[in-house]
């Protein structure tokens, strides 16, 4: 009987099994079961898990970005410190060079002054001696001139006595000449 009835129902709806109302309760029941099953899978496992993974990834990304930023800042600081040290070293080197130069200059100046003084003293001494020698030489010239004049007078007028005083005056007068 039941078989005949379902067969008749199937024959009655040859076109669309979708319109066969006898299958509706079965489909709807299993659909509800399926939806509940998927809903449980989704809400109990999938959404919390995927949400946590996505949140963790976001956190990791943020952390990594922050770390990168930090490292970048540190690198910039290190560079600034390096540049500062370089500038300090350079100015220090300049300072030392200047100091040394000034020291050497001062030493040089004092040495030059000492040398100048020495030279001046030596020159004065030499001048004095030259003057002395000059005076001595003049005196000798006078004596030699007197002698030569006496000899010349003896040679020119032999036998005649020469007045020594007149000779000396004559020589002196000539020398001044």
């Amino acid at each position: 009987m039941a078989d005949d009835a379902t067969a008749a129902a199937a024959d009655a709806a040859p076109g669309m099994p979708q319109l066969d109302i006898t299958s509706f309760p079965n489909q709807i029941f299993w659909l509800v079961v399926t939806l509940i099953a998927i809903y449980l899978i989704v809400s109990r496992v999938a959404i919390p898990r995927i949400g946590a993974v996505l949140a963790e990834r976001q956190g990791t990304l943020t952390n990594d970005l922050a770390t990168a930023e930090d490292l970048k800042r540190q690198a910039a600081e290190a560079e600034a410190a390096y540049n500062q040290a370089l500038a300090d070293a350079r100015s220090e080197a300049h300072r030392i060079a200047d100091e040394t130069r000034a020291e050497i200059q001062a030493e040089l100046d004092s040495a030059i002054a000492r040398a100048d003084a020495e030279i001046a003293a030596k020159a004065a001494e030499s001048e004095a001696r030259i003057a002395e020698i000059q005076a001595g030489a003049l005196k000798s010239v006078e004596a030699v001139a007197g002698d030569v004049a006496a000899d010349i007078a003896k040679a020119v007028a032999p036998g005649q006595s020469v007045d020594a005083k007149a000779l000396a005056d004559a020589v002196a007068a000539r020398m001044k000449g």
């Binding site: 039941a2 078989d3 379902t6 067969a7 006898t22 299958s23 309760p25 079965n26 489909q27 709807i28 029941f29 299993w30 659909l31 079961v33 399926t34 099953a37 998927i38 899978i41 989704v42 496992v45 999938a46 995927i50």
Partner: peptide
């Protein structure tokens, strides 16, 4: 059998079950 009562496992049940399994495979 020809009886299709509301709780009898049918080909609907089979393919919905496979869909559940596929969802679980992907998401779990």
């Amino acid at each position: 059998g020809d009886e299709l009562s509301w709780f009898v496992p049918s080909n609907v049940t089979l393919w919905m079950g496979i869909a559940i399994a596929a969802v679980a495979a992907l998401l779990v």
